[in-house]
Amino acid sequence: MKNLIRISLLIVFIVGSQLNSNAAEKAEYLKTDWSFKGPFGKFDRAALQRGYQVYTEVCSSCHSMKYLSYRNLVQSGGPEFSEAQAKAIAASFEVKDGPNADGEMFMRPGRLSDKFVMPYENEKAAQAANGGAYPPDMTVLVKARGGGVDYIYSLLQGYEDPPAGITLDDGVYYNKYMYGNKIKMSNQLSDGLVEYSDGTNATVEQMAKDVTTFLMWTAEPHLETRHRMGFKAIVYLIILTVLVYFSMKKIWSRIETEV
């Protein structure tokens, strides 16, 4: 038994040092309850749908979402829009297709199988339109930042006037959660910026939470399945371990020495 304790201590140490290395230089993030945290965590459907609305109306003019397709909006464990709703959403975007029989590219309404339409043709165009800073693709953004959802949630609410002594260039803003505190994105959220169709009051905090939830889903679309399957797998393993333990005791009881 002591061996096991030692092994688990070792694991805790490794994980701990790993967290430490990731935790270098960050301000205390704002905290909120995430419904998807913990071994039984699930997404809040309404929050995902609202988050999609915030993404589309606010973020998507600069930030691409290149690994997501419109069909994903329907899949279980996501925002779970109805197929008709998702088709309407897809059709509201113009998608470049082709070449047609004449060898020309043409625009057509989006379909479920299409990827999310990109706001810019390419990275260079995105940089040119945003003062040299490339607005990062948002699909896996929460996994690409050390602080994860807490970081994104805080960043969206972290705009402040710069403290005395810090001067900011044109097009640079002060954000207390940003690495180095200087960010090229201006404050995007303000109370009542979007009008939620479910009547939720669109405060900055609410929108930040909703859009972050949506981004968590885009980064981990199978999170709910993973949690469910993990629970089953671990329960199963524990049952089998117990059975094997007693079988082992039986078998070893055949020889005289206890091992």
């Binding site: 199963y236 393993l237 049952i239 089998l240 059975l243 094997v244 007693f246 079988s247 039986k250």
Partner: peptide
């Protein structure tokens, strides 16, 4: 009892392998 234990262990193990 021992037979049952071994059979159960094998059966549960086989289910896991399949999964």
């Amino acid at each position: 009892r021992r037979d049952f234990l071994f059979t159960a262990t094998y059966a549960v193990g086989a289910v896991g392998l399949g999964a």
